[in-house]
Each structure stands twice: as structure tokens, then as C-alpha cells.
Design a protein around this nucleic acid. Structure first.
Length: 788
DNA sequence: GCGACTTCCATTTTT
DNA sequence: TGGAAGTCGC
């Protein structure tokens, strides 16, 4: 409290004079001390263009957080800072952490979020300039595909050559490279490509798609970037405004930005060039989404006088894990050379587990997690199972459930993608923007009100013929003649009146009140209640809708005084939320299951990378070119470097796919890890004689499948004891002696005194105060402390 | 217009 | 396997 008022007075001073506020330095010192030399230099360099290349686990987030906090402490107005992150969750966490240093009221004024969410806000504000309503809808991928399907049908094209997803990918790639539909049709090279793939009509579909989106008052994900660029290019006054507003720009995960994002950032930063980008080329894993590694490499061209900072010390993982990951990534040709190193302890080797089937893989990994957890008393939060594709989660789910181990699957079908939620949201969307055609199509006959497919098709035809949206036709059949019967027309009219009544209340009542009304009077709730006795899934649907309403209530309560949080405020970025964003306060205790992609930026003491098989990882679709394969390899690098203490790789001999067992070969990546870091394991099986895996000597995985050797028969219980003892650090004996008040000596920081103990087992941590280095938190496992 | 039925087809990652 | 699209009879 006190600090805020002192600060605000100081800030009034800064506003007039531009000098470094020495008075605040003591506050800064406290956290700057927690940084190593290169981190601190990167934090303190706040003017001009700079690039931070941050190796895995090198404290990148911490540098970003402290840098922003430092900027604010230096008197920079938070309103002038824009920080673009990769997920909303990352943005939220960073705001929170900055708030702890500078005070929450300062932190909340920073413009922070994903490219998509920050730009969607800018677009809403300036929508009129682009001919969109300010409450435009954001189409998600499903909406986009459904619209494209309609267009393909309308053009009477063969839906086998023109698949919605393929066409959408093509359009998406164009937008990410800022190519308009017109430019697409006039570009010879692109047209040539489309003729080659025998889909010459994609350009025409793109034109129509853009047209329909515009009429519906809707933007898709890519439009949020595409139109931001249009806005800034065609309206110099708008560009000027945002250049002045965002004098300081930070971009996280720069290696995963695409051309559109690159250009927008470049434009916004052009006036002041206070631009800081942070990234790691070795972790670029989104090129399929248009991400362009070149952006990192080109930075020096755009800003020749930029400063480069490299963070190479890894604080996350054991020596073995860091070295193994390095040995993998070294095989890539395209990379910025850097040496990631660590002072952490050596740790145990990466174990490689082979199982006969994918189901057995699930059981073995679940069993291992169970054993480690039992033996060390770790929290289940410490474990993660990472896979290449979402559908691999099944065998692990089953096995974990059988062992009563709590787990959570991230990604996959998110809450907002569930049918019942999308249905409700479609009504919400219509209330905010009745021209939203995808929402309209979705619920015009749900719950059933006798408006069939043919009638809807005729409605679309009439809208197309008259060059208006479906909603406008619905509102005025006399102006737009439509081929539907009088009785259907009457039903449509009733529907229209209902939506209009929702629309009328949009800005009069709060989000929750309107939402509740919609759910009731649309008949959705009644419909769901009718089916609730059919089974648990039907019951769950009602619960999900209730959860959505509960979320809305919370949202509505979050309003400031005199503020009305409307349903359209709520809808603003619902389309941009992901499962990870939904995560409630960290009261969890569960094993995390997720794709490697969604594990980016996270870390876990125990990591299991599963499905290490050819054609699965690397994916079958990515083995045809070097660049694709290198991306898969970076993905593998990301996976390994999530692990702090222990990393386990597993693969199965056969995998059950499309109702048949398919033989699978071990992944080539297994052979790419320097063998000195590996330890092969043959899981003991209850069924004797079936194991094909040799002892620890066979290093060649590709040949290993058919090598018959007699495995040493180790009873399961004994085996598990062995495993666990291997995890126990050698200096375990020291652990118990270390408590609050113990004087210790650290190899790097010298003598110090323990002020706090956290965690248990392998995770036991000590906060130690070193006279010359300040307070440090160390993992006892790694720290190699001497008790004095 | 609607629901029950059959058939077909998948196979990557996500804001 | 399982979800989506197409077919058929009311």
C-alpha cells in the first residue's frame, strides 16, 4: 500500500525528468540478485532492439518477467508496454509475477496476451475502419471448415478432391503470408501449384470464403493477424496511435512467429525500436502453422545495431538430460550454434523401455509412475506423459485409472469444443451478432423446431442471390424472396423474434442474466433434461452447461463499480481460450498427459516420452524432407528438455490401429541419442518367455526388434526396488542433516546458511542465504552441499 | 422433415 | 475403432 503511493509520487517525477531513479534501486536489487550475469544484462538492457536466445530451461520466463518489472521500476509507464506471449496462460502468470514485484495495479495496465487476443482487442476497437462490426464473431476451425464445405457444395465441386481441411490449410497459409484472395487468384505461382494438385478452384473458394465471412461479420483465427496488418497498413493514423502507445514491445517464443506476426511487430516497433524478442531456434515446432524460423535469423538484417544475449546455462535438468538433448539437436543443420550447459548433478541415465504392445506400454509406464510415487512420496504433479499425437492418450488413461492414479489430459477436445457448449455459445453469438452464419446454421433447428435441411439450404441460396446474410433474409422475406413454405416461414419467424428478443437485452442486462434466459427460453435446457436419464454422458452435458453458466456468473461478478459486463464482453475471446487457460487455481494433484507441442514451456521432475516409434515419432508425414524431419527432431528436443530429474523413453512392438495390430519399428531418434546417456530396460513381465528384448548390451534399436536374447529373469518386486534405488541420489545421506539453520558450503556460491526447507524426497529444496550472492533456492539432489 | 440405418474413411501438431 | 456423411422409409 505504502509503496504504491510512494511510487506514484515518484512516477510523477519520472514523467518530467528522464533519469535513472536511484531511490528505487534497492527494491530492484532484491530480484536482480536472483539472476546470473547474462540474465541480468539482458534484463537491464531495455532500450533499442535486442534478441535473447534462451536455451531450454535457461530461465527465459524469469528474464522476461524481471525485465518488464525492471522497466516499470525504471519509470516506464505500463500502458506503454506490450508483451506478446504464446498462450494466454503464460500471459496471466507473467502478469501475476510482475504484479508481485511492482504491485498488481501497475501490472494489470500492461498489454499482455497472445498475438491473437491482443490483436482481436485492437481490431474490435477499430472494426469500423475495416467494415466489420465491433462485436464481430471469431470463427474457430470447425466454423471455418463448415463454411468451406458449404461453398464447395455450392460450387458443385467434388468433395473428394476439395477437402475442407485441405482448402482451409491453403487459405490459412495464404493469410499468414498476407496474401489476399484477389492476390491469390492473380498469383501465377500459386495458381500453378493449385493446378498441379488439381485443385484450381481454391482461389475462387478463398474469394467466396472471405466474402461470406465479411457478410457474417466474422473473422477466423488467421484474419485476426491478417486484418491487423491491413488496419495498420491502410490507416496511418491508427498505426501512429499504436506506435505511440506501445513504445516498448516484447515478444516471447519468437521462433514460432509467422510472417504476418513478424511484419505487424516490425510496423509497431518502427517508431521507437524498443523491441525485445525472446526465443530459441532449437524449439521451433510450429512451422505447420506458418511459423518461420527465418524471423530469428532475419532479425539482424532489420536491426543491424541490435544486441544479442544468449542464455545458455540450464537450471532445469540433470547433466545427463542436458547432454542427451544436445546430442540429439546437434544433428540438425539449421540452427544457431549455442552450448547449453548446466551445473546440476549428473543424474541417472535416460531409460529406454520396450513393450510388446501399446496397451502394455500404458501399463508399464503407469506402473513406473506408481512405484516412483510410492517410494519417494512425490506429488503426482511431478509426472508427465508426453506423446506425439492426442489419440495415444488412451492406453495410459486406462492403465492409470486401473491403478487409481489421478491424471488430467490436456488438449484434445476442450471444454469449449463440446457439442452442448458450442450449441449454447451459438445462441450467445447470435445475440451479439445475428449475422453470424455458422452460429445460425447450428441452432436454427436445435432444439428441433421443424426447420429442415432443405429449408436452410434455400435460405442460404436466397442470401447468396441477394448478396446479404442469412439473418437479413430471415428478417425480411418480402424484400428477399425465398423458396420456403408458409408454415416453415412461420417457424423461421418465431425463431427470428426469439433471437431479436435476446439481442435487445444484450446491452441492458449482465452476461449471466441474459445467458440464463437464453438457455431457458431457447429450449436447450429442456432438451438436455429430456435426455438426462439416458446415461452418464447426457447427465454430464447438463453439468457442462451449468459449469458454463457458473463461469459466466463469476465473470459478471468481476465487474468494477458501475460497469456492466455483457454477454458480448464474455464472447470477446472465448474462441481464443484453450484448455490450459481454463485451469483453475493450482489445487491439482495429478499426472499430466499431453502432446509434446502443448508441453512447450512446461517442466516436470519425471517425464515419460512414449510412442518412440518410426512413423509415429517422427510422424509418417514428416519424413519426406530434411526440414520436416528437423522439425520433428526439435520436437524431440523439446520433449527431453521438459524433464528435470528423470526422463524415460518407451516404444511398443505392435500398436493397435484401425482395428488391427500393426508392427512398429523403434524410432530413429532412439539411435540419435548418444548411447552413453541411455540405459535399456526390459520390463519384467508376468508372462514368461515372451520378451524379445536383450539385456543392456544391445545398442541398435532398429535391429533390436528381432534379436532374441534371454533376458535375465528379474522378479517384478525386485526390479522395482532396483529402479527406485537408482533414483536415489548418492548424497542422500546428507539430506537429513540439512535443516533450517544448517551452515553449508556450495561449490559456486560458497558458504551460506539454510533459511527454509521445501518439498520432500528427491524434490527436497533448500533456500540458502549466501552472504555474497543473496538467497538461492537449490535442489538438494543437485546442489552437492557440504555441511560445515 | 425426421430418425434409423448403413457405409465410408480416417491417420499430426494448435492460436 | 468411432465419427461423419449418405440412404431410405415413414
Amino acid at each position: 500500500m505504502l509503496r504504491t503511493s510512494v511510487k506514484s509520487r515518484l512516477q510523477a517525477v519520472y514523467a518530467q525528468k528522464k533519469f535513472v531513479p536511484l531511490i528505487l534501486s534497492p527494491i530492484c536489487m532484491s530480484y536482480l540478485d536472483e539472476l546470473n550475469e547474462s540474465q541480468r544484462i539482458a534484463v537491464e538492457h531495455i532500450y533499442g532492439p535486442s534478441m535473447v536466445i534462451a536455451g531450454a530451461g535457461s530461465g527465459k520466463t524469469r528474464v522476461l518477467t524481471f525485465r518488464i518489472a525492471y522497466m516499470i521500476e525504471q519509470g516506464i509507464d505500463p500502458f506503454n508496454i506490450m508483451a506478446l506471449t504464446f498462450t494466454n496462460k503464460a500471459a496471466r502468470e507473467m502478469t501475476e509475477r510482475i504484479g508481485k514485484i511492482t504491485g498488481a495495479s501497475e501490472a494489470k495496465n500492461i498489454t499482455m496476451g497472445t498475438f491473437h487476443s491482443v490483436f482481436s482487442r485492437i481490431l474490435r476497437y477499430n472494426a469500423d475502419r475495416l467494415g466489420f462490426p465491433s462485436n464481430f464473431t471469431i470463427y474457430d476451425t470447425q466454423d471455418s471448415k463448415s463454411l468451406i464445405k458449404d461453398i464447395i457444395k455450392e460450387f458443385a465441386l467434388d468433395d473428394k478432391t476439395y477437402k475442407a481441411s485441405g482448402v482451409l490449410n491453403r487459405i490459412s497459409a495464404a493469410k499468414n503470408n498476407l496474401i489476399s484472395a484477389e492476390a491469390y487468384c492473380n498469383n501465377d505461382e500459386i495458381q500453378g501449384e493449385d493446378r498441379m494438385s488439381r485443385r484450381p478452384e481454391i482461389g475462387r473458394i478463398y474469394l467466396q470464403y472471405a466474402n461470406r465471412c465479411q457478410k457474417a461479420g466474422a473473422m477466423d483465427f488467421d484474419d485476426l493477424l491478417y486484418f491487423t496488418n491491413v488496419l495498420l497498413t491502410e490507416h496511418p493514423d491508427v498505426l501512429h496511435y499504436y506506435q505511440q502507445k506501445f513504445k516498448y514491445i516484447l515478444v516471447d517464443e519468437y521462433q514460432d512467429t509467422n510472417f504476418a506476426q513478424y511484419l505487424i511487430v516490425k510496423k509497431l516497433a518502427a517508431a521507437y525500436e524498443n523491441l525485445c524478442v525472446v526465443g530459441d531456434d532449437a524449439q521451433s515446432i510450429y512451422s505447420f502453422r506458418g511459423a518461420n524460423i527465418e524471423n530469428i535469423l532475419n532479425f539482424r538484417k532489420d536491426y543491424p545495431d541490435f544486441h544479442l544475449f544468449k542464455l545458455e546455462q540450464n537450471y532445469r535438468s540433470t547433466q545427463t538430460i542436458v547432454d542427451a538433448a544436445n546430442s540429439v539437436i546437434q544433428r540438425n543443420q539449421d540452427q544457431i550454434k549455442k552450448v547449453v550447459w548446466t551445473e546440476n548433478g549428473k543424474g541417472k541415465p535416460i531409460s529406454v523401455v520396450r513393450t510388446l504392445t501399446d496397451n502394455e506400454e500404458g501399463r508399464v509406464i503407469a506402473g513406473k509412475i506408481f512405484e516412483v510415487q510410492e517410494a519417494l512420496g512425490s506429488s503426482y504433479n511431478d509426472f508427465a506423459i508426453l506423446y506425439r499425437t492426442n489419440k495415444q492418450s488412451r492406453s495410459f488413461e486406462e492403465a492409470l485409472r486401473k491403478l487409481n492414479i489421478p491424471y488430467k489430459i490436456y488438449g484434445g477436445l476442450s471444454f469449449y469444443q463440446r457439442k452442448e457448449i458450442k450449441d449454447v455459445l451459438a445462441y450467445f453469438r447470435l445475440a451479439a451478432n445475428p449475422r453470424d452464419e455458422e452460429a445460425l446454421k447450428r441452432v436454427i433447428n436445435y432444439p428441433k423446431r421443424g426447420i429442415g435441411k432443405t429449408s436452410v439450404e434455400n435460405l442460404i441460396i436466397s442470401a447468396g442471390r441477394n448478396g446479404v446474410s442469412m439473418w437479413e433474409v430471415l428478417c425480411d422475406f418480402t424484400a428477399y424472396p425465398t423458396d420456403v413454405s408458409t408454415s416453415t416461414r412461420q417457424k423461421m419467424h418465431e425463431f427470428t423474434v426469439m433471437v431479436q428478443s435476446f439481442q435487445a437485452e444484450l446491452n441492458k442486462v449482465d452476461a449471466y442474466t441474459l445467458a440464463e434466459r437464453i438457455v431457458k427460453s431457447s429450449g436447450i435446457l429442456a432438451e438436455l433434461h429430456q435426455d438426462k436419464d439416458k446415461g452418464p454422458e447426457e447427465m454430464e452435458r447438463i453439468q457442462n452447461v451449468e459449469e458454463l453458466l457458473a463461469g459466466l456468473l463469476e465473470f459478471t461478478k468481476g465487474a468494477e463499480e458501475d460497469e456492466l459486463k455483457t454477454l458480448s464482453d464474455f464472447l470477446m475471446d472465448v474462441a481464443l481460450l484453450t484448455d490450459a487457460d481454463q485451469e483453475k487455481t493450482e489445487e491439482k494433484n495429478h499426472v499430466s498427459l499431453m502432446t509434446i507441442h502443448s508441453s512447450k514451456g512446461l517442466e516436470f521432475p519425471y517425464v515419460y516420452i512414449v510412442g518412440m516409434e518410426e512413423n509415429l515419432f517422427p510422424s509418417q508425414l514428416s519424413t519426406s524432407s530434411r526440414t520436416e524431419l528437423e522439425e520433428e527432431r526439435r520436437l524431440f528436443y523439446v520433449a527431453i528438455t521438459r524433464a528435470m530429474l528423470s526422463c524415460t523413453l518407451s516404444y511398443a512392438g505392435t500398436r493397435f490401429l484401425w482395428n488391427q495390430s500393426l508392427k512398429s519399428e523403434p524410432s530413429r531418434f532412439l539411435n540419435e541419442i548418444d548411447a552413453q546417456y541411455l540405459q535399456l530396460e526390459s520390463p519384467a513381465r508376468s508372462l514368461g518367455g515372451k520378451s524379445l528384448m536383450g539385456g543392456g548390451m544391445d545398442r541398435s534399436f532398429t535391429g533390436g526388434l528381432n534379436t532374441k536374447m534371454n533376458p535375465p529373469v528379474i522378479p517384478k518386486s525386485f526390479k522395482s526396488l532396483q529402479d527406485v534405488s537408482a533414483q536415489r541420489p548418492s548424497n542422500q545421506g546428507n539430506f537429513d542433516q540439512i535443516m533450517v539453520g544448517t551452515n553449508v558450503e556450495h561449490s559456486r556460491f560458497g558458504k551460506g546458511r539454510v533459511t527454509k526447507i521445501e518439498g520432500a524426497g528427491a524434490d527436497k529444496k533448500a533456500v540458502i542465504f549466501f552472504p555474497h550472492h543473496g538467497s538461492k533456492t537449490v535442489l538438494l539432489q543437485f546442489a552437492n552441499l557440504k555441511v560445515i
